[in-house]
């Protein structure tokens, strides 16, 4: 695990600075966060799904959101690229700062925002096109026309997603002919083809067998060098295996947020402990 100099990792097991008036259970003391969430609440119509969440996401790290089903972790993830905008009846209060600027500001071009914040979905969703066209789709809509450049992007993305060797001979076959794990890696390759800063992963392994899951987890470790990853997972093992920071959400509230090892070994909140020890969830 390599770490850029500008981004010191908190010493393992260290207790964050409590003197600054922060709640140590919610703030592991992240410097230069890529996202800062301030008091985010979300309503579906009358029903409140997220309650006043404030969190800071570290750059070039893997952050995991865990919690029982229906706790709002996927909804929360979809706030980062404003995918909730598509839904009717959603009202959002609070703010998310991306690189210090609000993503909800009218000046933000939503298409540019989403290019910079990629997403991989729970169910792999390759387009009904060829493998090549799946990868080239993103660059094309952002104006890349040159065939040579597209070839380059396709190869680089597929290599980054560790899929190149498996599909290089059938780039022009329909992507729907790939296996489930390959399809999911294709979706990751597709997401990184547009060179985002962040990749949001919404339970990317929930439909995959353990072998395919292992490959994706391995891939995430490689991607961490260049991208900030946020993963939603219902598997605590996965969160503890892959992530650097973990946030535990319960009933739409952020219960605890901290360095992964510390949160799993020595949770500060009772609910967290109950959840990770399997008393509920």
């Amino acid at each position: 695990m390599t770490t850029p100099d500008s981004m010191p990792v908190p010493p393992k097991g260290a207790v964050p600075d409590a003197a600054a008036g922060r709640d140590p259970a919610l703030d592991p003391g992240i410097e230069d966060p890529i996202f800062s969430v301030h008091g985010l609440s979300l309503h579906y119509g009358d029903k409140q799904a997220l309650h006043d969440i404030s969190i800071e996401i570290p750059r070039n790290r893997i952050t995991a959101f865990i919690g029982p089903s229906g706790c709002g972790k996927s909804t929360f993830l979809r706030c980062f690229n404003r995918l909730n905008d598509l839904l009717d009846n959603v009202t959002i209060r609070g703010d998310i700062l991306f690189e210090g600027r609000s993503i909800f500001s009218p000046e933000v071009e939503i298409n540019t925002l989403r290019r910079r914040i990629g997403m991989v979905f729970q169910k792999s969703n390759p387009f009904p096109k060829s493998i090549y066209e799946n990868i080239a789709y993103g660059p094309r809509i952002h104006g890349v026309r040159d065939r040579r450049r597209l070839d380059e992007i396709v190869e680089r993305s597929l290599r980054a997603a560790a899929l190149w060797d498996e599909v290089k001979d059938r780039l022009h076959d329909n992507a729907l002919g790939l296996s489930g794990g390959q399809q999911q890696r294709l979706c990751i390759a597709r997401a990184i083809a547009v060179e985002p800063d962040v990749v949001l992963l919404d339970e990317p392994c929930s439909a995959l067998d353990p072998l395919a899951t292992a490959r994706i987890e391995e891939l995430m470790q490689d991607l961490k060098e260049n991208y900030t990853l946020i993963i939603v997972t219902h598997s605590m093992q996965q969160a503890s295996r892959v992530s650097d920071y973990t946030a535990f959400l319960y009933l739409g509230r952020l219960i605890e947020y901290g360095v992964t090892e510390q949160l799993f070994i020595k949770p500060r909140k009772k609910e967290t402990e109950d959840y990770i020890t399997g008393r509920f969830g």
Binding site: L83, L86, R116, M119, F121, N125, P128, K129
Partner: peptide, 27 residues
């Protein structure tokens, strides 16, 4: 046309028009 395809396209930064003409229409 599955919502996941539309979300997938939008999440890549495609506009609604691009999504409709390049993903929804062929599908």
């Amino acid at each position: 046309v599955p919502r996941t395809l539309i979300s997938g396209s939008l999440a890549l930064g495609a506009s609604r028009w691009q999504t409709v003409t390049r993903i929804v229409l062929p599908t």
